Computed example of a mutant assay.
Amino acid sequence: MIVLALLYMALGFGALTALAIMILRIGALLGDCPQSRATARAAAVTIATGFAAIGAGGVILVGAMLPLLANAPLAGFLAALGFAALCLGLGFTQAVGTLRALMMDSAKAKPATA
Score class of each variant (00 low, 15 high):
residue 96 V to R: 11
residue 63 G to Y: 09
residue 20 A to C: 03
residue 102 L to R: 14
residue 48 A to Y: 11
residue 33 C to W: 15
residue 34 P to R: 15
residue 61 L to F: 13
residue 86 L to I: 10
residue 75 A to W: 15
residue 86 L to S: 10
residue 51 F to N: 04
residue 40 A to G: 12
residue 75 A to R: 08
residue 63 G to N: 06
residue 41 R to I: 00
residue 17 T to Y: 07
residue 44 A to H: 11
residue 25 R to K: 12
residue 25 R to V: 08
residue 76 G to Y: 13
residue 57 G to T: 01
residue 70 A to C: 05
residue 20 A to F: 12
residue 59 V to G: 02
residue 84 A to S: 09
residue 79 A to C: 06
residue 59 V to C: 07
residue 21 I to A: 04
residue 43 A to W: 12
residue 37 R to V: 01
residue 29 L to D: 11
residue 51 F to D: 00
residue 28 A to G: 09
residue 82 G to E: 07
residue 33 C to E: 03
residue 49 T to K: 11
residue 76 G to T: 00
residue 16 L to E: 01
residue 27 G to R: 09
residue 96 V to S: 05
residue 33 C to M: 12
residue 69 L to D: 00
residue 42 A to Y: 14
residue 50 G to M: 02
residue 92 F to Y: 13
residue 93 T to M: 08
residue 20 A to E: 05
residue 91 G to V: 06
residue 93 T to R: 15
residue 80 A to K: 10
residue 88 L to Q: 01
residue 78 L to R: 11
residue 98 T to W: 14
residue 33 C to L: 15
residue 21 I to M: 14
residue 96 V to K: 06
residue 25 R to S: 09
residue 62 V to F: 07
residue 68 L to E: 03
residue 102 L to A: 08
residue 90 L to F: 14
residue 55 G to H: 10
residue 86 L to M: 12
residue 56 A to V: 00
residue 70 A to I: 06
residue 102 L to M: 13
residue 26 I to Q: 09
residue 64 A to I: 09
residue 24 L to S: 07
residue 100 R to P: 02
residue 94 Q to E: 01
